[in-house]
Amino acid sequence: MEKVRIVVIVLVIAIFAGCAKNPGEPDVLLGKANLLLPLKDQPCLTGTNITATESTVAFSWQPAENAEGYDLIIKNLLTNQVITMRTASVSQNINLLLNTPYSWQVKSLSTRSSETPLSEVWKFFNAGPGQISFSPYPADMISPYMNQKITAVNGKVNLKWSGADPDKDIVGYSVYFGTIANNLNTIIDNKMVTEASDISVVPGNVYYWKVITRDARSNISDSGTISFTVN
């Protein structure tokens, strides 16, 4: 298996080296990959189980214009661990944990371009055997995002997020906010809204916030805590 892996790596390097851009040659227009599988915001039920806790998931996407290779980027949404696989193909099999939500995207690569366009980001839930109910994906924190510096308007800011669920049965969001990361106050309690408006802040302070998403079967997900600074 190790010999096969070495051969694949050598082939990818050879492909890139053989297509190197000549000095002074203008960049080619490098396109974005269009994702195919796993499907967006859906449970992945087609993986091949290899252990009680892992399965092999097949990723595929359409070729990007002028691309010579790709980086497949997969993120565990519970741990934020990122896996990056470089390939000259438009498909890749990866072993992933069962009962776990992931996001994925593809970066287009070419030695003839300084650009590295990214595809859309899709989420999926790597389902376990017989699993029929799925937790919501952790909410995407739109604004403020991590470590952002923002300017308050009349001493107030707005918090914005988005959510998704493989079962499409989200029933509410709870939002927690404050200046102490491990002691946040509840400012929204299980409501079907994706914005908290007119939150009072003080210039110069660092603030923290997070979102808990709930679905109709009492499954929950935690966005993780985001910090931002008010100018």
Results as ranks from 00 to 15, higher is better:
225 T>R: 07
20 A>Y: 06
230 V>C: 14
57 V>C: 01
3 K>D: 07
191 K>Y: 03
6 I>T: 05
83 I>K: 14
28 V>N: 10
8 V>Q: 10
55 S>F: 00
6 I>E: 15
39 L>Y: 06
62 Q>M: 14
212 I>S: 04
113 S>T: 04
180 I>M: 12
221 S>V: 05
145 Y>I: 04
171 V>E: 11
213 T>K: 03
97 L>D: 09
10 V>L: 08
227 S>D: 13
86 R>K: 13
140 D>I: 04
5 R>W: 01
195 E>K: 04
204 G>E: 14
123 K>M: 10
214 R>D: 15
218 S>V: 09
12 V>A: 15
215 D>W: 03
94 I>K: 01
57 V>H: 00
119 S>A: 13
125 F>I: 05
109 L>M: 13
106 V>N: 07
92 Q>A: 04
131 Q>P: 03
184 L>T: 00
168 K>M: 08
223 S>K: 02
96 L>Q: 05
156 K>E: 14
2 E>V: 00
82 V>T: 13
147 N>T: 08
26 P>G: 10
204 G>M: 15
118 L>Q: 09
169 D>C: 02
48 T>W: 06
143 S>L: 13
36 L>T: 02
111 T>D: 07
65 E>V: 11
39 L>H: 05
135 S>V: 09
18 G>H: 06
199 I>K: 10
220 I>A: 12
111 T>M: 15
217 R>F: 11
10 V>P: 00
77 L>T: 02
103 S>T: 04
59 F>E: 03
178 G>N: 04
11 L>Y: 06
